[in-house]
Design a protein around this nucleic acid. Structure first.
Length: 258
DNA sequence: ATGGCAGAACATTTCTGA
């Protein structure tokens, strides 16, 4: 089963690229972030024509997440318990892997810049609530796949110029500590189980020729429960998507389960 | 150097993003 995570930076602006990607790669489930539209304007028909069901947590202009799936899904949830701001940043469902129930969580974590502003404090709060949510699921002995745009650079090798990001909301020590808290709950940045090398990025800024210079960031991640590690066949960053006409600034991250 | 580019909308300007 191939699950992919992709911050598309507007599902409507990206629809032709997404359709081409689906036709070529045939993922079972797509976790999309930054769809930038409300449900009423979501291109349900385009996905239906390709044989997919769409589950959407939309918002006008900003944010928005969705799950696109070949199979019909159940138990869709679109809220992060305790979040009072209610931006559209999470959508979850339950799937089966190796006959076990797995909570599949699609996230678009707040960016948090500029630091020490309301936006930054919201990011901290949101991560705290996510940690609580994970703990609750684990208390019930259930498995987890959390994927999406984390807006966190896990380590120095995940950014082209770490020294420039020391006081950035994506890389500040305080934020990386929150990230470590999540990892310490028994989750694994599964891309790193397959690839330890630097310069593996999932995002390149539109400006300053970042793509041409490979000035990227690795901020899109699959975090999975320990039990699931042995059931992952492959994890790949589908980098070529960034070189297309009218690309998103993020590329798909693919995780294939046996 | 807070710019650069891209997308959406109360749209020819402002906001958000990372």
């Amino acid at each position: 089963m191939k699950i992919i995570s992709w911050n598309v930076n507007s599902v409507r602006a990206r629809i032709e690229n997404i359709k081409k990607y689906i036709n070529k790669n045939s993922p079972d489930i797509l976790l999309l972030q930054e769809i930038k539209t409300e449900e009423k304007n979501f291109p349900y028909g385009e996905f239906k024509d390709l044989g997919y069901f769409s589950y959407v947590h939309g918002q006008k202009s900003y944010n928005g997440v969705s799950i696109i799936s070949k199979k019909r899904l159940k138990e869709i949830n679109t809220s992060l318990p305790g979040d009072k701001i209610k931006q559209s940043r999470i959508i979850t469902t339950k799937i089966k892997i190796k006959n076990k129930n797995v909570n599949l969580i699609n996230v678009y974590v707040p960016n948090g810049n500029p630091v020490d502003t309301e936006k930054y404090f919201y990011k901290i709060k949101w991560l705290d609530l996510l940690i609580k949510y994970i703990k609750k699921i684990e208390k019930n002995d259930e498995l987890l796949i959390i994927a999406g745009d984390f807006n966190i650079i896990p380590e120095e090798i995940d950014v082209h110029t770490p020294e420039k990001y020391l006081n950035d909301a994506l890389f500040r020590i305080e934020i990386r500590k929150k990230y470590r808290e999540i990892i310490n709950l028994g989750l694994n940045d599964i891309f790193r189980n397959f690839n330890k090398k630097e310069e593996n990025y999932t995002f390149w800024d539109y400006t300053q020729g970042s793509w041409q210079k490979n000035n990227g960031l690795r901020i899109d991640l699959f975090l999975i429960s320990n039990f699931l590690i042995n059931h992952v066949k492959k994890v790949e960053i589908y980098k070529k998507e960034r070189g297309r006409i009218k690309p998103s600034d993020h590329v798909p991250l693919e995780c294939t389960f046996i």
